[in-house]
Design a binder for these strands. Structure first.
Length: 524
DNA sequence: AGTGCCGGGCA
DNA sequence: TGCCCGGCACT
């Protein structure tokens, strides 16, 4: 994998921050239509607007370290490498909250056409910028035409007071940030001694977030607003929409209109849109509060951390500073939790009596469980659990392959089962499949402990959209399917004669193999 | 496409 | 019973 920028077909994309966060159109995000993001920094609201109709660029920054592609094609950023580890992404609403713009080295470099920084505080420059961009960027404008911009070109929406206190506010925001109000913000730079696994997991989390939030494709997010379980701050979209409409020329307006139309009205069903739930996590130090609504988390921050009147709905936006959105794969979470039910001392209630079905645990229960695990690393804040939350579809698909989690202190953290585990755990290990609620304790390595989660007669479903249904059916059908006649026994994984000797040495095969029967020499 | 193997036919 | 193979499931 090499670092490169790829120019691709036009699409509406999102550009967040610098070139490392430019709109991306990886395979997994080709349908995103998100047009903009809102970025808040303390009381100052910044917006990054993108020319939705411009030629698009797919800016894939691929880490050479091997964090690269997930099986689903998702590109993970190497946050550390980019020096942008302090940026948090916020998922489906397109809101990207950053503790402080001053903590975003390199964010002000721009890529033509990917987005525009519009600084209403400097209309002249804004106009120049727009015109220069439009003049230089063609539909296929090469990426080498980066136009570095000074950091002052961070756009500020009009609905924010363009007060002279802006500098002070930014300063305050910076100070607050540097006072480690957010461990997430400071983590990458201030905690270099963090163990590598956790560090990597953290990076993956961030990368996952950026993979989605910075991609040019947000339609499922937008459509998700209709999902009751995923509350979305309409303010963001509305603001951005208005901002976009008011910040561009007429010709651009058409593009924007199209983009927003596509974004808000695209009826194409998206994959797994119901499996992802956006939660809001308080970033206040030592506070792991996770709420399902932005208003809730804002109220929490206002009242608990900022000491403001809870009755007042007045908000200067400072709360936004202290929480971030996280995407929780409810499927993975549910299954993961269900899988670990027998081993989790914090899980209330008896384990499922009959065949490990995927207990349909309400989402709110997950939240409370998260909170209840205060003695363990916070489910949503620590690296491994966060990774779990961000497993998303790419890894979830693979889950029929068991993930072996070495038994250890992190076991209680619900697993570093991010789907990338070696799966070669020996000795005492717990093998967890997110897809199937199997929890297998491995005593000693050997054929006896061979783990196989593919049930007999199961037909794999490649479509992710049927993910949940398939799994639930799987859980319910499996016991019966095993007893039905005519089902195949699971294919053995041992090498058979055919593979061992090859076709040219067929005479060395066992008779069963020669007869296309079950191998007798290399039995499982 | 390659592999494993079930089910069935044939001698 | 031994041998072989079509065809399906799975990788």
């Amino acid at each position: 994998m090499d670092s490169r920028y790829i120019l691709e077909k036009p699409l509406a994309g999102t550009r967040v921050g610098g070139p490392d966060f430019s709109c991306r159109a990886g395979r997994s995000v080709l349908h995103d239509t998100r047009v903009h993001t809102v970025e808040k920094s303390g009381p100052v609201l910044y917006k990054h607007a993108m020319d939705g109709g411009c030629a698009a660029l797919k800016s894939e920054k691929v880490s050479p370290k091997g964090n690269g592609l997930s099986p689903g094609g998702r590109v993970w950023h190497d946050m550390e490498k980019n020096g942008l580890g302090d940026q948090r992404d916020t998922g489906y609403t397109g809101i990207l909250k950053r503790a402080s713009p001053t903590h975003c080295p390199g964010i002000n470099r721009q890529l033509p056409c990917s987005f525009m920084h519009l600084d209403i505080r400097n209309p002249g420059k804004q106009a120049d910028l727009v015109s220069s961009l439009r003049a230089t960027q063609g539909p296929n404008a090469p990426l080498t035409e980066k136009q570095p911009l000074p950091s002052t070109h961070i756009p500020v929406p009009r609905n924010r007071k363009p007060s002279g206190h802006a500098d002070k506010e930014v300063m305050a925001a910076t100070v607050l940030t540097s006072l480690s109000t957010s461990p997430l913000v400071l983590y990458p730079s201030s905690a270099p001694t963090v163990p590598e696994p956790a560090n990597r997991a953290w990076k993956e989390v961030l990368s996952a977030s950026y993979s989605s939030s910075t991609s040019g494709n947000w339609s499922w997010d937008a459509s998700d607003q209709s999902v009751p379980s995923t509350p979305s701050p309409p303010l963001s979209n509305d603001n951005n929409k208005n901002f976009l409409l008011s910040s561009h020329g007429d010709d651009v307006n058409e593009d924007i209109t199209e983009s927003t139309h596509f974004m808000f009205e695209d009826p194409i069903p998206r994959k797994r849109k119901n499996s992802m739930k956006v939660m809001f996590k308080c970033l206040w130090k030592n506070c792991e509060k996770v709420l399902s609504t932005s208003s809730g988390i804002q109220r929490h921050i206002r009242t608990v951390h900022l000491g403001r009147n809870s009755d007042s709905d007045y908000s200067d936006g400072e709360e936004d500073f202290y929480y971030s959105e996280i995407e929780v794969n409810m499927d993975s979470l549910t299954e993961g939790l269900s899988s670990l039910t027998p081993t989790s001392p914090t899980t209330a209630g008896p384990p499922p009596v009959f065949p490990p079905p995927l207990t349909d645990v309400p989402h709110s229960e997950h939240i409370s469980m998260n909170n209840s695990q205060s003695h363990t690393p916070s489910l949503l804040s620590q690296s491994a659990p966060s990774t779990l939350c961000h497993i998303r579809t790419d890894h979830a698909y693979q889950a029929t392959a068991p993930v072996s989690i070495p038994a250890g202190p992190e076991l209680a953290g619900l697993g570093s089962g991010n789907g990338t585990g070696p799966g070669t755990g020996t000795g005492n290990a717990i093998s967890v499949s997110w897809q199937s609620p199997h929890v297998i304790f491995k005593g000693a390595p050997g054929p006896v402990t061979h783990v196989r989660t593919v049930s007999i007669g199961e037909k794999r479903q490649p479509a992710a959209s049927t993910h949940t249904t398939v799994n639930k059916n799987h859980a319910l059908i499996t016991p019966a399917a095993k007893s039905t006649p005519g089902t195949r026994k699971p294919r053995g994984e041992a090498k058979k004669c055919r593979k061992v000797y090859g076709m040219e040495k067929r005479d060395m095969w066992c008779t069963a193999c020669r007869w296309k029967k079950a191998c007798q020499r290399f039995t499982d």
